[in-house]
């Protein structure tokens, strides 16, 4: 079973499987385990998945999270893919899901997830991280907490430093 890092840097075992986007003309290849499917396909077949707590969705970095506005909390898990760690679109997607669409359940970073990006991900609202397999999960807790505070408001805090200083 794959390992996933939690917000606190702990390692948890997990059975969610990311189902890749099917080729044209093919249908989704659904596994036995809980599955994350492309968000637009979930939306298109929403009535089939109603009430299932073992179906979540994933967004790719170029996808628009706006398509799930008003529906996000029907999902137990949303993942955002980082095709390359240097592709920073996923951070914006995460903040939109959390701060604009009010998503409250688990938000997971998947794909090219490395140690040095974890704290940015945490600040943008991700609370679980499928660390790339070759990376040392025992170092995640440190990487998640390099900084004890940030200057800005983000998903983790709505009080930017300039407001904390004032109080």
């Amino acid at each position: 079973m794959p390992e996933v890092i939690t917000k606190d840097g702990a390692i948890k075992q997990d059975s969610w499987v990311v189902v890749s986007r099917p080729e044209d003309g093919e249908s989704l290849n659904m596994p036995e385990q809980p599955a994350l499917i492309p968000a637009d396909l979930w939306l298109a077949g929403k009535e089939h998945f109603e009430g299932r707590d073992d179906i979540g969705v994933w967004f790719d970095s170029h996808d628009e999270p706006e398509i799930l506005e008003g529906l996000v909390n029907e999902l137990p898990l949303i993942a955002v893919n980082f095709p390359k760690f240097a592709d920073g679109r996923g951070y914006s997607i995460a903040r939109l899901l959390r701060e604009r669409f009010g998503y409250e359940n688990e938000l997971r970073a998947i794909g090219d997830v490395l140690l040095d990006q974890l704290q940015f991900m945490k600040r943008c609202g991700f609370d679980s991280y499928a660390l790339r397999e070759d990376k040392d999960a025992s170092k995640a807790a440190r990487a998640l907490n390099f900084f004890s505070q940030g200057y800005q408001a983000a998903t983790d805090t709505d009080v930017p430093l300039f407001r904390r200083r004032a109080s």
């Binding site: 240097a86 920073g88 951070y91 990006q117 940015f120 940030g150 200057y151 800005q152 930017p160």
Partner: peptide
Amino acid sequence: QWSTFHPEFAFL
């Protein structure tokens, strides 16, 4: 201060 380690904009 706002731009220093801004978590959303570190990988533009």
